[in-house]
Structures are given as structure tokens and as C-alpha cells.
Amino acid sequence: MHDRRTNYFLRVLIILALAIGITTLIATLWQRSEDAQYGENGTKNYELPKSIVSAVETVKGLFGGGAGESSESSSSESLPESASLPSSESSASGGESTSSESSSASEVTESGLVPEREKASDSYFDDAVFIGDSLTEGIKAYELLENATVLAHQGINVDSILTKEAISSGGGRITIPDALMRLDKVGKIYVMIGANGIAWMDNATFIKKYGALIDKLEECQPNAIIYVQSMLPVNEQTIIDQGQYEPITNDSIDDLNSRLMKLAEEKGVYYVDVAEAFKDETGGMPAEATPDGIHLNAPYYQKWFDYLLTHTVPGDIGG
């Protein structure tokens, strides 16, 4: 009698254990399926505006999928996420390309103007640092360039960039040059100071200050290749209509750009004429490209990145 009862309870226990096992298995599979659906940040993706989806999809094709691991580098503790260092793997590749990058600008053109070439690989920006104002700051919002470092600030201009403490670091703020100096193994620096400040500064002063900026960047990262990017055109009418900024003319920007190209030649650095990718038939920025006449809508950021990938110096086609 006692044995029968023991056997009975044993059987019930076995059935229970089996039930628990099966239930756990089902729950685990269920959770995995949910994780796959919701992605790593736990938010269920919903649809992007069509324009952004189109931009993202196109650039995904250009860049491939694997970016963004560089922020885990150890020596970037004092800098914000956006200013984190390239990964060691990326840095190594960046280091390899530096020897060819540091060759003189005459390998490109006599003026240092970088011509169109074959498209660089998706790791091209791993060792890149972008320096500039609000247009450059906007890069941080784009996942596709999360492997690059961005040192930028809205409203900074060629006059204040050397002195304004604009970059968050260790609970305080430091200047862009100071932040740049703290980075290791920087392969290339892209600089673009846009329309901020040109309304109240004469062109000769602007170029003089830009020259001082290039000197400072070289001092901070002597082994990095420097790309001076042309200023982007504006939509003059939108600026006037919105009245948000001082009126700026594309003629003035064109004049500054030709002076910038000459400055790049004098300084022995490269000049990338990104502006040509943005000009419409009037030589200005198309109205649909910009919400306020100066800043770029999402699809035009993609144009910018695409232009840089197809305008590189020889030997610098990727990491």
C-alpha cells in the first residue's frame, strides 16, 4: 500500500517536472521571439518618414551594416559618446592608410582639390573626426556615421572655435582643439565651418582665422590628414522669408570657397568641394533640401556622406 502511494506521488512529481520543463522551454522561445521582434533597445520599430527611410536604405547599401563599435574604446573616458575613439581594429587600419594619406596634396591635384574616385569602403570613416558647427553637429544624429567622431557645436564659428568650451567632458566643457588633442590615432580630420559668422566678418578676416584653425588642427593631430570642406550653398530666399538668420548670398560663399581652396593649397592640406553636390541650377541650395535655408534635411546628409566617400585621396579608400 505504502509502495503504491509512493509510486503514485513519484509519477505526479515526474509529470509536474515535465510540465515545468516544457513550460519553461515555451516561455524561453516566446521571449526570444519577442527579443527578435523588438530589437536590442527594447523599442518596437515603427515606420520612418519615407524620405528618411529612402536615405537610410541607400546609405546602408553604401556603408554596409557594421558600424558603431568604436565607442567602446577605452581611452575615451573623458569624452562624450560622440567624441569616443575609434576601435583598435579600426585604428590599425586607419594607421595603415595614414602613411599614404600624409603624402603631399600634389598627388591629388596641384591645388589639393580632391577629385572623384572609386567609392571607399564602409570602414573609411572609422578613423575620421568631423569638426564644425551645426551642420557637422547634425551628423551625430545619423546612425550611418556613428563610427566617426564628431566634435561640433551649434553656433560655433571660425572666430570662436578655438576658444569656446563647447564639448562636454568629465562633467565640464572643453574646447574643440582640446578634445581633438585627447583623441588617439586620428587618421583624418574633416573640417567645415559654415555660414555662421560670415555675415559679420569680412572675407579676408574669415580666411585668416581659418588659416589659424588649420594650423591648430595640425598641431593637435600632426599625423592626421586634413580635409577642408567647402562651405555649403544656402537657399537665399528661404533665409529671407524666415528671417531667422542674417541674409547670406551664394556669391559671397563662392568667393569664400575659392579663397578656401587657395588656403588649403598654401597650407598643404586637401580641399573637398562638397558644395558642388548641393548646388541647383541657380548655384544655390534647393529649397527642398533645407528647412531654414542653411541646415540640411535628412536625404541631403546622405548626399554629403556619399560625396565624401567618392572623393578621397589615393591610397585612402577604406580601412
Binding site: 530589437g39 536590442e40 533597445n41 527594447g42 523599442t43 520599430n45 528618411i52 558603431g68 565607442s71 562624450p80 559618446e81 560622440s82 551645426s134 551642420l135 553637429e137 547634425g138 551625430k140 544624429a141 545619423y142 546612425e143 556613428e146 551649434q154 533645407t290 528647412p291 531654414d292 542653411i294 541646415h295 540640411l296 534635411n297 535628412a298
Partner: peptide
């Protein structure tokens, strides 16, 4: 914004504190 690392460019949060998040921002920075 759907990328966690992009979100953390703007919000210095410890992801161990965050269960879920959603972020929308100006696309041009203007």
C-alpha cells in the same frame, strides 16, 4: 532615432537603468 548609441549622443543614460525608450528629434538640427 532607433540606434542606442545615437540616442546616447544626446542622453547620457546608463542603459542598465533603461527598460524602453523612444526618441524623436529635429532631423536638420535647425
Amino acid at each position: 532615432v532607433t540606434s542606442e548609441s545615437v540616442m546616447q549622443n544626446y542622453y547620457q543614460v546608463d542603459m542598465a537603468d533603461v527598460k524602453y525608450w523612444a526618441l524623436y528629434r529635429s532631423s536638420s538640427g535647425a
